[in-house]
Design a protein around this nucleic acid. Structure first.
Lengths: 110, 110
DNA sequence: TCGATATTTAAATAATTATCTAAATATATA
DNA sequence: TATATATTTAGATAATTATTTAAATATCGA
């Protein structure tokens, strides 16, 4: 989830997602939308891929990128739960954690 | 909006938001939840504040931080629009932008 | 007013991320 | 098979962000 948040924290990457929302596109096609070298775009695509936000598939000479909405909806869920717009099940989570305890440091909750 | 995304891209800051969702807290109280110096937490609080995600108010000796959900709901809106879960009004936005045009570079859309 | 407490700001450094050019890999096609 | 096209990987550098200690600011209470 942290990877997703980090991936979304960049305007270029969000724009790439917007482009892929319209339709699947090749890496080069995506790169044409930006004033940036292809390696840089490749790097951003990689970040999105590692975050699980896009998928890629080689099609001959090209590599076709497509949106994967699964993780996006997880993040959406985070916001829904957070803002209280969503299901109430988590809203009265009185798991009031205590300060300075610092146990379970590697849990990776959100 | 970019500031908000960037602010949300850090686990410490998201945890701070979680803490503030439960109740308003002072800077020191927040800092006690982390293995991190107070100046570091102050820095994170500042990032959240600049993103419009939290507000602060001095109360005597202390500074009390509180959640501001307004921007959070904007970001939620971004996801709703993006995933198509929300109102359809924006879903058929066939504003199919063309590549390599690169006009209007400073618009700050999302 | 003085000393203690709460918090931030400053300054330095470390760590991460973004970006570029050049080179490598994979595929297509003549 | 040789050449051209599409994309990524490597390596270097620049830019941004996180973190710390030390100092500054603000308020409280004796």
């Amino acid at each position: 989830m942290n990877e997703s948040f980090k991936a979304l924290a960049d305007p270029t990457r969000r724009q790439i997602l917007r482009l892929l929302r319209e339709k699947d596109r090749t890496a080069g096609e995506i790169a044409d939308y930006f004033n940036m070298s292809k390696p840089s775009i490749s790097h951003h695509l990689n970040a999105l891929k590692h975050a699980g936000l896009v998928q890629d598939e080689r099609q001959g000479q090209f590599i076709l990128y497509s949106l994967d909405t699964t993780v996006l909806e997880e993040v959406l869920g985070w916001f829904l739960e957070f803002t209280g717009t969503g299901k109430e099940s988590e809203m009265h989570s009185r798991t009031e954690s205590k300060p300075k305890q610092n146990k379970d440091k590697n849990r990776e909750v959100d």
